[in-house]
């Protein structure tokens, strides 16, 4: 049993939980995640480590399904049955130069520890935070302490820029060179970032697909990266953005949507919004519509995308995925 040391509501439907987990902190690094199971009947759910100290880890989540709704009900002093980790590979931290970290929704949680570590390595860190509205912006104060430049965007314009996170990125890309761009958030957002930075900046994304064990056993979190099948839990979660097949990630994340909605309705009596599958960090339901409208408006973009698609297609066709062992 792992004790909850702190619980705080930090925004509309967004909660912070600090959990005592001494065994995890020894090797925990930015980019790692944990898997927790609230109680005997709960599911194994992955969460990125948002912050850590010498005896506890902090996770952030948005209430999107039954598991997160259950977690939101916990109080300080309650305990969680199982916490395993640190899982996944830590993010690469080096002296890169100028790094732009684009994050949306609870993806900002993973971005914080990463920004901090990069800052300590004397990188110039530019953070772009996205949220639906001003009361869903995550840790703005913490980011402002470490960030060389902080840009906040909201979907409804209630704070900062009234746009998606990709707009300021697009502007910045025209003006300056980034040694590295890291995008953490909903797959649609990461896909758009990857498109913008293609052939402009080395870009990495953090993937959080549906997973069960988190130790490479079930293959549920498999993603297509380059020509290979990778397991996000043991090969990731950080991948080269320009190699990732986002489309399959987007539809694979909806695999258990019907079952999850049923379970959530049964237990909490309310309907969860589509596009929000329970296990991932994505919160910001930047609807596909707005993006596609934008794209439609920009004919050049479409043309360039088509070109890219044809470029990308060739190698994909040649080889099939992951070689079977033995």
């Amino acid at each position: 049993m792992y004790k909850i040391l702190k619980k705080q509501k930090i925004g509309q439907g967004i909660y912070e939980l600090r959990i005592e987990a001494k065994h995890i902190v020894k090797y925990a690094k930015p980019g790692n995640f944990i898997i927790l199971r609230k109680n005997e009947t709960g599911e194994r759910a992955p969460f990125t480590i948002a912050n850590l100290d010498n005896k506890s880890i902090t996770i952030l989540f948005n209430v999107v399904g039954k598991t997160t709704a259950d977690l939101a009900k916990l109080k300080k002093g309650d305990s969680i049955k199982d916490v395993a980790g640190p899982l996944g590979n830590p993010s690469e931290i080096g002296e890169f130069g100028t790094v732009c970290i684009v994050s949306g929704g609870t993806g900002c949680a993973s971005a914080y520890l990463l920004s901090k570590a990069l800052k300590e390595k004397r990188n110039k860190v530019i953070n772009i935070l996205g949220a639906k509205s001003k009361d869903q912006i995550i840790w703005e104060d913490k980011f402002s302490n470490i960030s060389d430049r902080l840009i906040v965007c909201t979907d409804d314009g209630s704070k900062g820029m009234h746009c998606l996170v990709t707009k300021p990125l697009e502007k910045l890309l025209k003006k300056q060179y980034f040694n590295r761009v890291i995008a953490i958030g909903p797959p649609v957002m990461m896909k758009e970032v990857a498109r913008l930075t293609y052939q402009r900046a080395r870009t990495f994304v953090h993937l959080a697909p549906i997973m069960v064990d988190g130790i490479g056993m079930c293959g549920g979190c498999r993603v297509k990266v380059g020509n290979e099948t990778k397991f996000a839990c043991v090969d990731g979660p950080e991948f080269d953005a320009h190699e990732v097949d986002f489309d399959s990630i987007i539809y694979r994340n909806s695999r258990y949507f019907d079952e999850e909605q049923e379970s959530h309705e049964k237990h909490h009596g309310s309907c969860i919004t589509k596009a929000a599958t329970k296990k991932k960090t994505p919160v910001k339901q930047k609807s596909k519509k707005t993006i596609s409208k934008k794209k439609a408006a920009n004919k050049k973009d479409i043309a360039s995308r088509k070109k890219k698609k044809t470029i990308n297609k060739k190698p994909v066709k040649k080889k099939t995925a992951r070689k079977t062992k033995k």
Binding site: G220, T229, Y251, A321
Partner: peptide, 29 residues
């Protein structure tokens, strides 16, 4: 603990699942 996949077209489609995942969901969970 590392499930083999056949490396054929369509293995990323929804509804394609390794026996490991299917059985883990059923037995362990």
């Amino acid at each position: 603990g590392l499930p083999n996949l056949p490396s054929i077209q369509g293995e990323h489609l929804n509804g394609v699942i390794t026996a490991n995942e299917f059985l883990t969901r059923i037995n362990l969970m």
